[in-house]
Measured scan of single mutants.
Amino acid sequence: MSGNGNAAATAEENSPKMRVIRVGTRKSQLARIQTDSVVATLKASYPGLQFEIIAMSTTGDKILDTALSKIGEKSLFTKELEHALEKNEVDLVVHSLKDLPTVLPPGFTIGAICKRENPHDAVVFHPKFVGKTLETLPEKSVVGTSSLRRAAQLQRKFPHLEFRSIRGNLNTRLRKLDEQQEFSAIILATAGLQRMGWHNRVGQILHPEECMYAVGQGALGVEVRAKDQDILDLVGVLHDPETLLRCIAERAFLRHLEGGCSVPVAVHTAMKDGQLYLTGGVWSLDGSDSIQETMQATIHVPAQHEDGPEDDPQLVGITARNIPRGPQLAAQNLGISLANLLLSKGAKNILDVARQLNDAH
């Protein structure tokens, strides 16, 4: 009898209710805020589980004197976190989706994509230029951005401005803007500013005609071990179906173009009346040469937790077992079709030249 009692006690200790789920994140304040929001949602869904947040620095956090596009290494903000995932030191990792490459290392998958916040870019102005827009900034004003995508589009749109690289986390960039006289304004992701509670610093939100956004911008991705079915089931509740389908289309477009950090590629997606609209573009580094096109596809946005595919093969690095396969494939095909259209119009040449120029500098 006593033996059975011990077995029952052991089973209770090993039951999922007692389990601590370890969540990996970057150390920056924004990353911690984003991770806290994901953990809060998981806690609400699984009140019996405990969650421990483990923060670590990544290569991208450490190399702050070089433009991201020049470092010449993929997975700048993800490699150390993936290493911890691989060694079973954490069970899942919360990322900004735009930091996750469209091809993940073997053994990993994006197990959830959370509801997207505003994906557009924002302009934050130096205190002396508050009330201005990019259009009304004085001639030769210097605007800071760490992104080739932003610089290429904005140089084309605002030729009277000069664009220079600015690195560091959000706090560091804002301090550089406010305390030094080098920059009249800087460009940042609206979602990051909003998550930090800095709505009052948003001086201008850039519309798609001015600057399309990065693939996955404004959404959070939760990376897990691809074979860890328990954790895949656990994080599945975080999937937002519309965000998922938009981001599958965007990531398929980028992957098929073979774009990345070192080339200016941008997108804009919208879901309306059962249609998914995808606009994508590529630019030369100075913005003088560009190709942009829009395509659409009829896609039914499923309700969360309709029964999805059981075999769960990944699409552009994403596993969404609780979302039907048909809409996911339709979104992926839309991204591939748009990429093929741009490639047929000469996108590869623009991107190759951009890559060579970026590598040469």
Rank of each mutant, 00 (worst) to 15 (best):
F129R: 05
A189G: 09
H268N: 15
P208V: 06
N200H: 14
A44E: 12
V353I: 06
N169G: 08
Y213R: 01
N358D: 00
M56D: 14
T243E: 05
L278S: 07
I318D: 04
Q153L: 07
T298R: 14
V215Y: 00
L174Y: 08
H126D: 11
I205M: 10
P313F: 02
E223W: 01
E306Y: 05
K348C: 01
F108T: 14
S288W: 14
A189Y: 01
C247N: 06
F158P: 03
P106M: 05
H120Y: 13
Q194V: 13
Q296Y: 10
R225L: 09
F77C: 04
L234D: 04
L351R: 06
L257M: 12
L97N: 04
L49A: 14
V202W: 04
A330I: 01
R164V: 11
L245F: 05
Q181W: 10
A320C: 06
V124F: 06
V142E: 11
G168R: 02
D289V: 13
H95S: 05
H305R: 06
L177Y: 00
L206V: 07
K27N: 14
I350Q: 05
A112F: 00
T145Y: 01
V301S: 06
R164P: 07
A226K: 15
H207A: 14
D240F: 10
C247Y: 09
M196G: 09
G281A: 12
L68H: 06
L343I: 03
P324M: 03
T59A: 10
K74Y: 07
R116M: 03
E82L: 07
T279R: 06
E258T: 03
D286F: 06
A330R: 15
Q275T: 01
C247S: 09
G111D: 03
P119Y: 08
K79L: 09
D312H: 12
F108Q: 15
R173M: 02
N169E: 05
V202D: 09
K140E: 14
L238N: 00
E258G: 15
K79E: 10
A354T: 14
A339M: 01
L342Q: 08
L285Q: 08
I231F: 03
G144N: 02
R246S: 12
V39F: 07
L206C: 10
Q314W: 10
C114H: 06
L188T: 10
M56A: 12
G326Y: 12
V90C: 10
V143E: 04
Q204C: 00
S165V: 09
K115S: 14
A55T: 08
L342W: 03
G60R: 04
L338G: 03
P119M: 02
Q292V: 07
T59W: 04
P106F: 13
N340V: 03
S146Q: 14
N169H: 12
L177N: 07
K157T: 07
F51Q: 06
T133V: 08
E209N: 02
F108R: 14
K70S: 07
L68W: 07
H199M: 13
K70E: 09
H207C: 11
T58W: 00
Q229V: 06
N88L: 12
R321T: 10
L76F: 06
I33W: 12
L315I: 01
S75G: 12
A189T: 05
P127F: 11
E250Q: 09
P324A: 07
A67I: 15
R164A: 11
V237C: 04
Q29W: 11
D61K: 05
S75M: 06
A122F: 03
D273F: 00
R26K: 00
S141M: 13
E293Y: 07
I205V: 12
A266G: 05
P105L: 08
L134Y: 01
R195L: 10
R325T: 09
A320P: 06
V301L: 07
A214L: 03
P313A: 14
G280L: 03
V215L: 08
Y213G: 09
L49D: 08
E223T: 06
H300E: 12
V90E: 06
L188A: 11
V222S: 02
R225N: 03
D233Q: 08
V202T: 14
D99M: 05
V263M: 06
N169K: 11
E210S: 05
A214D: 06
E250K: 02
V353P: 08
F158C: 12
E73D: 15
L254K: 01
Q229D: 14
V143R: 03
A347D: 01
E82Y: 05
T66K: 02
F163G: 09
I350N: 08
A303K: 14
N171E: 13
K98W: 00
Q304L: 05
R225Y: 08
W198N: 12
H126E: 13
L49F: 06
V93L: 09
G48Y: 08
V94E: 03
F51A: 08
L278Q: 15
L188N: 06
A320Y: 00
F51I: 12
S288F: 10
H95L: 09
S69A: 09
I187T: 05
A330H: 03
E162V: 14
E82G: 04
I53F: 13
Q314L: 12
M295I: 11
T102R: 12
V282K: 04
S147V: 03
L343V: 14
A55V: 12
Q181T: 13
P101Q: 09
L238M: 15
D178P: 02
A44Q: 10
V263Q: 15
E209S: 05
I248T: 05
L276H: 01
S96N: 00
N322A: 00
I33T: 12
L244W: 02
E223C: 14
K98F: 00
K62Y: 12
R255S: 12
D178V: 10
A347S: 09
G281W: 11
T78E: 02
D61F: 00
R255L: 00
V103D: 10
H199N: 14
A214F: 05
A330D: 12
A347V: 03
L254G: 00
T298V: 13
G308C: 10
G192L: 01
S37F: 11
F163V: 13
G197A: 04
L137K: 03
L148F: 13
S184C: 15
A303V: 04
S288P: 12
Q34A: 08
K140S: 13
G287F: 05
L174S: 06
G335F: 11
I53P: 15
H207D: 08
K27C: 12
K157D: 08
R116L: 04
A354Y: 00
R22P: 05
I231D: 12
E139N: 13
H268M: 15
Q292S: 14
A320E: 11
Q217D: 01
L42P: 02
G346N: 06
A67P: 04
D36V: 12
S284V: 00
Q275C: 02
F129Q: 13
V263W: 03
R32M: 12
Q292Y: 05
